[in-house]
Every structure is written in structure tokens, then in C-alpha cells.
């Protein structure tokens, strides 16, 4: 993985890759004309991105504390995040213009990006190692 030592650049890289990956479902919902799905995906992606940025700020703040204090700080921040997710999913379910499942998938999108990136890197490394061993 690139930029392991610099969290801010890694964050930008992940957001860039998420944008590239999100083009597929957004284009699909545009072509098939399902506006509720499109709105839900964009809503979920927006909230997921904002929460991703919030987490980096919280981690930076927690590193200045003592061990017990950092534990309870991050735990409380997670419960605030959980309340935000609850509000977002309730709004998506109540409002008929927004698709509920598309919102949930939009919230998961950053996770898909990270796992896909790691697996592609792993496959590339294994392939390069095989190639090296064949060259010798």
C-alpha cells in the first residue's frame, strides 16, 4: 500500500479510489433511471466520507491522552457515530424518495475500497514473486 507513513495522504488516496469505484453503481442507477437508488447511494457516500474524516481527527486527539482516557474517549465517540448512522438510516427509511438499501451500501463503500485495494496488492505481490523466481 502507498503512503503508509502519512495518514492524511492515505486518506486522500482512499477517497480518490472510492470515487473511481463508486462510478459503477452511480452510472448503473443513472442509466436505468432509478432516482431513489441514485439519491440513496449519494447520501450514503456523503455521510460515509464525512465520518471517515471525523475518525482521523478523533484518533489524532486521542493520542495525546493517557491509556484509560483514550479508551473511553474513542468508545464514546463510536456511540456518537452510531447515533448518526441511526438517524441517517431512519431518514432513508421514512423518506420514499431515498432507497434504504442503497443508503446502507453507500455507507459501506469505503470499506469495500480498502479490502479490494489490499487484496489486489496481495495478488500483485504474489505474482511478482512468482515472476522473480521464474527469472532465476
Amino acid at each position: 500500500m502507498k503512503h503508509i507513513d502519512d495518514p492524511v495522504r492515505l486518506q486522500k488516496e482512499i477517497l480518490k479510489k472510492t470515487c473511481y469505484l463508486a462510478v459503477i453503481p452511480v452510472l448503473y442507477s443513472l442509466v436505468s433511471g432509478e432516482w431513489a437508488t441514485l439519491l440513496g447511494l449519494l447520501f450514503g457516500l456523503l455521510i460515509g466520507t464525512l465520518i471517515f474524516r471525523l475518525r482521523l481527527i478523533n484518533i489524532e486527539r486521542s493520542l495525546q491522552m493517557s491509556e484509560g482516557k483514550a479508551t473511553s474517549f474513542i468508545r464514546n465517540r463510536y456511540f456518537i457515530e452510531y447515533a448518526i448512522y441511526l438517524a441517517v438510516l431512519l431518514v432513508a427509511r421514512k423518506n420514499p424518495a431515498v432507497n434504504f438499501l442503497a443508503t446502507a451500501i453507500g455507507l459501506f463503500f469505503i470499506k469495500f475500497t480498502v479490502i479490494g485495494w489490499v487484496i489486489i496488492d496481495l495478488i500483485r505481490d504474489a505474482f511478482n514473486q512468482k515472476l522473480e523466481s521464474f527469472k532465476r
Partner: peptide
């Protein structure tokens, strides 16, 4: 930097179980 990166990636993956239950 490497520690913050590790924690951030770990939090991305572990936060999703809560969304399933919601």
C-alpha cells in the same frame, strides 16, 4: 504516522458490524 494509519484502517473495517444490526 504508521500507528495512526493502522488504527484508521482497523476502525474502517470494524465499524460496519454496528451498521448491520441497525
Amino acid at each position: 504516522g504508521a500507528i495512526i494509519t493502522t488504527m484508521l484502517l482497523g476502525q474502517i473495517i470494524s465499524g460496519s458490524t454496528g451498521i448491520y444490526s441497525l
